[in-house]
């Protein structure tokens, strides 16, 4: 093993001693402005781009009505059992979401203890760490209460989004994520843009391949 490593590194070092005749180390120009986006309303930009990729947008007028909105979605999908994550900031618990759904007769699990029962759950409800307005993207950091499967395993994903989590785009997200990933504090992060999709058969867009085919965002003021 060490042999291969040494050999490869020696090959690369030898190869690089021959500089490319087309190599010019001119510094790249800074990115210019993209298509002008009205940043006075980043949440509005996110809503537009999120719905353009097939997401469903909900904006209950008050915090008290968030539960009703979630319950409506759960009923709309005929879900008897739902997964309710424990998001890092604790938004879901501060809304007492799990208890309230249980009171309404919905079967609630806080985590997937038995993976073989994954298909019992029609809906997964999570928080989100950032929402990237420019691309309509949701960004999730892995955390103890919201692991890897919690944002991929069910056919329907309901995301509770606080207004303050909306950022402009990738650049701001990378700034947020870098310290968590570089320090090794979390093992990964996921960007999710719209439903799971494929075009592998005749380029016909089909949603809901291995991940959720339906994704809802409920804005929490």
């Amino acid at each position: 093993m060490t042999d291969s490593r040494t050999a490869i590194l020696a090959d690369i070092a030898a190869a690089l001693r021959r500089p490319s005749p087309h190599h010019h180390q001119a510094p790249a120009p800074p990115p210019g402005p993209g298509v002008p986006i009205d940043w006075s309303d980043p949440v509005g930009v996110f809503e537009k781009r999120f719905t353009e990729v097939g997401g469903h947008w909900h904006h209950p007028p008050t915090r008290a009505l968030v539960l009703d909105a979630v319950l409506t979605i759960v009923r709309q999908h005929d879900a008897r059992a739902v997964l309710v994550a424990e998001d890092r900031p604790g938004l879901l618990d501060s809304l007492r979401l799990a208890e309230s759904l249980r009171q309404q007769g919905v079967q609630v699990a806080r985590r997937l203890d038995d993976r073989n029962r994954a298909d019992d759950f029609e809906v997964m409800i999570t928080g989100v760490d950032a929402a990237l307005a420019e691309t309509g993207t949701l960004a999730f950091m892995i955390s103890p209460g919201q692991g890897r499967l919690a944002t991929i395993v069910c056919p329907v994903h309901v995301v509770l989004l606080e207004r303050a989590r909306v950022v402009r785009g990738l650049g701001e997200f990378l700034t947020l994520a870098k310290p968590l990933l570089a320090s090794g504090e979390v093992s990964g992060s996921f960007l999710v843009t719209g439903p799971s999709r494929t075009g592998d058969i005749e380029l016909t867009l089909t949603v809901g391949v291995h991940g959720p085919g339906t994704i809802h965002v409920v804005l929490v003021d």
Binding site: R49, V53, R111, L112, R115, L132, E134, T135, G136, T137, I142, S143, P144, G145, G147, R148, L149, A150, A177, L181, G184, E185, V186, S187, G188, S189, F190, L191, V192, T193, G194, P195, S196, R197, G199, G211
Partner: peptide, 24 residues
């Protein structure tokens, strides 16, 4: 590649599950 603003999923992976993480 596909004309998407962003692909549906981008995984940024830093290795194995950390203590406390429920899966991975």
């Amino acid at each position: 590649a596909t004309g998407q603003r962003m692909s549906s999923y981008v995984s940024l992976l830093n290795g194995r599950r950390r203590p406390g993480e429920p899966d991975g």
